[in-house]
Structures are given as C-alpha cells and as structure tokens.
Design a binder for these strands. Structure first.
Lengths: 259, 259
DNA sequence: GCTTGAACCCGCCGTAGCGGGAGGTCCTAG
DNA sequence: CTAGGACCTCCCGCTACGGCGGGTTCAAGC
C-alpha cells in the first residue's frame, strides 16, 4: 500500500523540473516562494529547492486560479484555509465576475468610441487635424462634467427626435454656450436675471432630449457619437482657454441651485 | 486684438489650479512633467510650475487620449509631431481597437468559465471541496496542453452529438487516460503496438468531436463546460502525481509522430 | 579525483501610472 | 510678523514577475 498524502515519501523535484512540467518559469516559482504563496517544502543542504507532490498540486491550483484572473493575494487567501471553503471561493468568484462584467462594459464603451472616431476620420469629415484635437479636448471636458446616465438620456431622445430637431438644438446650444461663457467671464452673479434666463433656455433645450424610457443597446453608441459631434460644434464656437468650460459647468450648477 | 497663439501673453495657472480645473491630481501633473509628456512651460524664480493656455490644451488632449485607453508613451508619440498626423492617429486607434477586441474576447471567455464554475458550486454537484480543487488542477493542465481551436472544435461536435454520445465518449476517454498513463509509467516506448492501438482509439474518440463547421457564439461556453466536466471525470480516475498529465500529453504527441 | 558546463542560489533593478509621505521652501492673508 | 496652506524635490510603494550579475553546486565525462 502506498503512503498517500505523506510528504516524506515519493519523488522530489528540482525547481527546473517543476518549471518544465508545469509550464511556468523558474523565476515565477521563485517569486511564489518569495511571497510565500508556494514554498518548496524542503531544501537540500545547499539550499536548493525540493518540491514535493503536494507542492505540485498546489501549484496547479494556483495556476488555474490565476487563469481565472484572480490576484496572487486572493489565491493565497483562498488556499490559506485548506479546509473546505467553497463558500469563500464562491464569494471570490462572484466578485471576480462582477469586476469582469464592469470591465467588459468599459471596454465596450471604448470600442464604440474609437470606432466612432475612426469613422469620422475615414469619412473625411474631419480633414483638419487641429479640429480633431479640439474634438478630443472637448471629449475630455464633457466626460469629466457629465454623468453617464445624463449622456445616455440625451442620446436616446436624440434618436427619437430625428436629425433636424437635433441640428436645431445643437445650433441653439452652441449659441447658449457662447452667451453663458461671456457672463462667466464678466463675473456676472448666478442670480443675474439674464443668466437665469439663459439657464432656463439651456434646460429647455436639454429637456427636449431628456426621457425616461429604457435605453436599448444602441443608446451608448449614439451618445458617444452625439458628444463627438457636439464637441466639434462647440469647439468651433468656443473662445479659449478651454478650462473655462469647467467654470461654465460649475456656474450652471450654481445658477440652478439659486433658482 | 488679442495675441492668439502666443504664450508670452495671457494667464498662467499654478499646478493646483490646473488640477482643479481639469480634474486630475497634482501628483499626476507632476508625473506628466517628470516624464516629459506635459511640461509646465514656465517656472517661477522659486521653481513653481506655471502652466500656460497651450499647456492646458495639451493636457486636455492627453486626458482624452488616455480615456481612450492609449498609453502615455503612445500619447507622447502622437502628440510629438504636432503637425498634421491624422494618419498616425488612425493607426494608433486601429491598433488600440484590435487590442480591445482581443481583450474583450478574453474577458468573455473568463466570464463564461467562472459562470460555469459558479453554476457547478450552486447546483450542489460539487459538495467536495477537494474535488473542486482537483477540477481546478485539471483545468490548469489542459489549458496548458491544448490549443483554443482544439477546444472549440471538440465542443462544437459535442453540441451536435447530444448528451448521450458525449457521456459515452467521456467514459471511454477516462479509461483511455488510465491505460495510457500506465504505459507511460512503465516506460513503454511510443512504438509499442499496444500504445499505438490506444492512441488510435484516443484519436477515434476525439475525431467524433472534430468538425470544421463555423462555431457559433455558444461554442466557447460549451467548450469550457465540457472541459470542466471532463476534468472532473479524469480527476477522479487519475493516479497522482498530477505532473504525469504533462508527460502523457508529450507522450501522445510523440506516439502520433512515430505512427 | 578533476574539470566543465548546466543548473541553482540570492540580490537587485526594471516595468506603468501614479499614490503618498518626508522634509524643506514659498506665498498670502490677517 | 506669523501661521497655514500650497508648492518644491526626492524616495518608497504597488503587480507579477523578467532579466541581469556574481557566486555555489551538481552530474557527467575523463
């Protein structure tokens, strides 16, 4: 009968052999040893690592969990209590799943955004590199200033209203931005009736795009394109410096609150 | 008339003001300065950074490109030749898109894999944590040993054949693994007729799952589940140590070549 | 027993994109 | 004139290792 589960029997493997057998590098094994994730159970008199069968099994577990995207720290924690801890594992995997889904959503968004930009470049609708850069600047500003939900709502209404209405709104909006920026630069207080009137018009234009219906899968893509186009519009009409845009957003919010 | 495009006119901003206006941290701005991506055009006598309007515009470009997922190095390269370089930008974005799509595919795969494992845990079909770990070990082994295409092909045939045929194949396969492992341990040469016969049967079982048709979207998910189930089967029938699995795969390959 | 080349040891520097702290200087309002 | 906030320059930290350099040790052949 074999001595199963005992480490003082059976073969030992050198670090190189383990690396060969498992497909990881020697350096990786040393790293795992260093951080205590996978220690070689024994050492020779001259400090060479000797891996036991148990070590190998642990290594395979580590690699599998790594392939699932868990961090070494997470793996260590779930392998620490070697008792039955399916619950802990379940929790970790669930968390990992949530993280992956968020990550996937983000990637999806980036993909659409880049496709939109590539489309604009290829369609020749943006022959001026400086305008392209301006668009980029505006994207940065708006991404900082608005929440995702707001962008989605705007985009949904846009698809429902059709291109002409959108065109009209864009033009009106560009004018509004210009006027508001002037007031901002003049330092007009947010309670100024002219400012309040502008804010009213601003929200009126915006409200035409607001809605509560359920957004389909296309919503975000449309949102991205809309922001890019709007950015271009506004970019043309904007008096620099760009950082004023942020002032404008803050200003708008204060004006709404004092209403 | 304003002096547009000249830096020796206009406001200057301190690093804190820039951070406030743009939404990035002071530390980030210093980092960009450090690596030369975004230098403050001027310094005061006491070495305090003074950012010009041009710096701000560059910052917005940097942030926009970062939001698209480009690395700081890539951004630096595309902003380096400030001339019209839409072509370079197009190339970068295209590459970025490809990278994102690969990344997305990987995430999708991980998601399915984890969902499969969670399903197994929740269905109570794996009450034994040690068996769960064994499954993990086998996943690691097989992921190292087979190519993705092989896994996809196997899975496709599986869905076409239905569960009974798969069940039969699995059983047969487990037996094959056992027998083959014995020959490996005995050191039987790959040219041994018994070994060759086993390899023939192995490939026959496998060939029932091989096909060339176009795999749908479900293919990979099915593949993952199949590997998990098979892993469990084989895990039960396997004589440890685990690292022999790798020997087996090598052995199989050599046997096929000497055929 | 001796040599020799491969395998092993440890320690250290590098990665991307900053976060955060130490210890010192500068600026501005009261 | 003083206090406290904003700024400065190092410098170490993070992940999961890769890849040196310089020094043992091992196994095989002579």
């Amino acid at each position: 009968m074999g001595v199963i589960g005992r480490d003082d029997a059976g073969r030992r493997w050198s670090i190189g052999e383990v690396a060969q057998a498992s497909g990881v590098t020697v350096r990786t094994l040393r790293h795992y040893d260093e951080i205590g994730l996978l220690r070689a159970s024994e050492r020779t008199a001259s400090e060479h690592r000797r891996y036991t069968e148990r070590d190998l099994r642990r290594l395979y577990r580590v690699r599998a969990l790594r392939a699932l995207g868990l961090s070494l720290e997470e793996i260590a924690s779930v392998l620490a209590d070697s008792t039955d801890d399916l619950a802990a594992m379940r929790g970790l995997l669930t968390a990992q799943l949530r993280g992956l889904e968020e990550h996937a959503a983000h990637i999806e968004q980036l993909t659409r955004q880049i496709r939109g930009l590539l489309g604009q470049i290829d369609s020749g609708s943006m022959p001026d590199p400086d305008r392209f850069m301006t668009t980029l600047e505006m994207i940065a500003v708006f991404e900082n200033s608005f929440t995702t939900e707001q962008q989605e709502q705007l985009a949904q209404r846009r698809t429902e209203l059709g291109p002409e209405a959108v065109e009209a709104a864009k033009t009106e909006w560009s004018g509004l931005v210009e006027e508001l920026l002037r007031h901002v630069q003049d330092g007009a207080p947010v309670t100024d009736p002219r400012v309040q009137a502008l804010v009213g018009r601003w929200d009126a234009v915006g409200s035409r795009f607001h809605g509560a219906g359920a957004g389909g899968e296309q919503t975000k893509a449309a949102a991205q394109r809309m922001w890019q186009e709007n950015s271009e519009e506004i970019g043309r009409s904007l008096p620099w410096p760009v950082d004023r845009m942020r002032d404008l957003v803050t200003y708008l919010e204060r004006a709404r609150q004092s209403r």
